[in-house]
Write a protein that binds this DNA or RNA. Structure first.
Length: 587
RNA sequence: GUCCCCGUAGCUCAGGUGGAUAGAGCGUUGGAUUCCUAAUCCAAAGGCCACAGGUUCGAAUCCUGUCGGGGACACCA
């Protein structure tokens, strides 16, 4: 064997990719291919049309130019090499130069044993090579409970983190607490009002500009309990810092319990206030100035049709984000000397980058405008320190909440919004999570309560869970009848079973492709397809009892099919685990 | 005015980073239930992949432009 980059588990698709690469390497030493030929674009995949065979490779088409020949001629030479491999029973050339491979059925049956052996680790990859990836997600402002607006990003971020972990990365799940801005003052004042209310004061209507939500009542009561009337009549300057900290702590408690309902637990909570207290923004500024990424300058007046009324030129410390493709340099401090959000965020990302090989942020699409500057900041850091830190911002589009086709109105101002807790109570964690993953994150989506709650059969999550439940039920039934899954007589399995194995065997590829693309939703769609295959296979038994899992008279066949069923169930379970959705035993 | 995302079946959406004849669900039409769970399955109908150019052996996919939908364009967070 030559050096083949086997970064994956030794699953079937990976094994045949390696075999193809070996054949190509031989052709390179035979002089058919140039010695330095690059196999980077060679793929070995199942053909879209199963009648074409078990596997197809595009090697001849990709390499024809390098070999200075035409695809079909090259394909013949590659096919000859591949046909010599024991487990390959046929290598045909088709279309513009595809090579379609047919495998000995034993190769597929062997995959079942692999699934059984690896169990919960089937599909796990070492692709990430242990790289430290920091995934920051949720980071909702600590001013109230989580509402639906946060939900999608939370689920997408969490599933992505799990996916990367399963694909061999060393993942840190991080939450950035924006506890330093003006909105925390508003929170503190709102809490103080509720505190006075709890002490028996008549507060009347909540004034404009404060948070009216009822969730602050218990906070006020707790604070009254803790402080008595100590802070009731003080000047604001006295109690504000105390109430800020207290209120933020309590809001984070609320948020964490909401996240727990979704099955989400972060490893690290980073506080913006702590960042400031530690002088991180100053450090960042000093470093950026030293490297000429920050200078004092005057912002241009905004272009476009809406010139601000009170525009006046001011000199501010500016970050050279234009150097990295932004259309304007961005201030890191305000004219009053305070840090801008960006100034702090920049320092925060520098901090994150120092402890990770790669950063991923999950943001709401309403922050799209700030992607360029923060990417610029991380790029500057990489450039300045000679340590490239790949940084990706995933934008998650808004969810339009519907109920029976009508948009659900939400207003933060009135305190009337649908919280995550409400939603989970209504439809359940698994439905929320899976549904959020049935659309690619960068596309807008509708979430219709009426549909998801009432017509439960429209829910892909039930479809997938049902497939798993069916398998488990069959296992129980079979055990009662004295059958146990066994890999001893797998040769009895026919073409229909092997078709099922083909799809199950794709799981490791799907995991790697999804992880590479940072798209957890692919796993959800894959599971749906696999469930469909299982259901279709199952229904063969409706017409023909000989095709059921349990065929009383044939112990060998039954136990082989149970072995198959167990493997499919295992794959579904592993996939659902990545998505954070439960694989139920019965429905 | 600038920037970002989206545009695929009547509707809701996939489409493995350029591959073979374009894929599901819902809805419509017609079928399967003495069944290991019918929350399932089978079949039919339904397409100018928004439009126009370009790149190459080959484009729904990449590049440019136009149109349409959504969002963002403070020293806010």
């Amino acid at each position: 064997m030559r050096k083949i980059k086997m970064t994956t588990n030794k699953t079937l698709y990976a094994a045949y990719a390696a075999i193809v690469e070996t054949a190509l390497s031989q052709l390179a030493s035979d002089g058919v291919l140039p010695a330095d030929a690059s196999f980077a674009n060679v793929t070995v995949e199942p053909p879209r049309d199963p009648s074409h065979g078990d596997l197809a490779t595009n090697a001849a088409m990709v390499l024809a130019k390098q070999a200075k020949t035409n695809p079909r001629a090259l394909a013949e030479q590659i096919a000859a090499k591949l046909e010599a491999v024991d487990s390959i029973t046929g290598a045909e050339i088709a279309g513009p130069g595809f090579i379609n491979l047919r495998l000995d059925p034993a190769a597929w049956l062997g995959e079942l044993t692999a699934i059984a052996d690896m169990g919960g680790d089937y599909g796990r990859s070492v692709m990430g090579e242990g790289r430290r990836v920091n995934v920051e997600y949720v980071s909702a402002n600590p001013t109230g409970p989580m509402h639906m607006g946060h939900c999608r990003g939370a689920v997408v971020g969490d599933a992505l983190a799990s996916l990367l972990e399963f694909a061999g990365h060393n993942v840190t799940r991080e939450y950035y607490i924006n506890d330093a801005g003006g909105q925390v003052d508003v929170l503190a004042r709102s809490a103080h009002l509720r505190y006075r209310e709890a002490l028996g004061e008549e507060i009347g209507a909540i004034p404009e500009g404060l948070y009216p939500g009822d969730y602050l009542k218990p906070v006020g009561e707790a604070l009254a309990q803790e402080f008595g009337d100590k802070h009731a009549a003080e000047d604001e300057a006295e109690w504000l810092p105390i109430f800020r900290a207290e209120a933020v702590t309590r809001m984070m408690g609320l948020i964490k319990s909401d996240l727990a309902l979704l099955g989400i637990h972060h490893d690290v909570f980073s506080s913006e206030a702590a960042l400031h207290a530690a002088g991180k923004p100053d450090e960042a500024e000093a470093w950026l100035r030293a490297n000429d990424f920050v200078y004092d300058g005057v912002l241009e007046a905004p272009k476009g049709k809406a010139p601000p009324e009170d525009w006046e030129p001011v000199e501010l410390p500016l970050f050279r984000s234009t150097k990295f493709g932004d259309d304007q340099d961005r201030p890191i401090k305000k004219s009053n000397g305070a840090w801008t959000y960006f100034g702090a965020d920049l320092a925060y990302h520098m901090q994150k980058a120092s402890g990770a090989d790669e950063l991923i942020d999950i943001w709401g699409a309403d922050h799209a405008g700030t992607v360029k500057r923060i990417k610029a900041a991380v790029a500057a850091l990489s450039e300045g320190q000679g340590k490239p830190v790949p940084f990706d911002v995933k934008l998650v589009q808004m969810v339009q909440l519907m109920r029976g086709g009508e948009p659900v109105k939400m207003s933060k101002r009135s305190g009337n919004f649908i919280t995550i807790a409400d939603m989970i109570e209504e439809v359940g964690k698994d439905v929320v999570r899976f549904t959020m993953l049935t659309r690619k994150p960068e596309a807008q989506m509708e979430f219709d309560f009426a549909k998801v709650v009432e017509a439960s059969k429209d829910n892909p999550v039930f479809y997938v869970q049902y497939a798993h439940a069916r398998i488990r039920s069959t296992m129980r039934k079979a055990a009662d009848a004295g059958f146990a899954p066994s890999g001893d007589a797998l040769a009895q399995l026919g073409e229909e079973e092997i078709a099922l194995i083909r799809n199950a065997a794709q799981f490791p590829r799907i995991i790697e492709a999804a992880a590479k693309a940072r798209e957890a939703h692919r796993v959800a769609f894959y599971l749906y397809d696999l469930a469909a295959d299982l259901h279709a296979f199952w229904n063969l038994g409706n017409d023909n009892p000989q095709k059921r899992f349990i065929v009383e008279q044939d112990k060998g066949l039954t136990e082989a099919r149970l072995f198959l069923g167990q493997a499919i169930g295992q794959v579904i379970r592993n996939g659902l685990a990545v998505l954070g959705v439960e694989a139920v035993e019965s429905m």
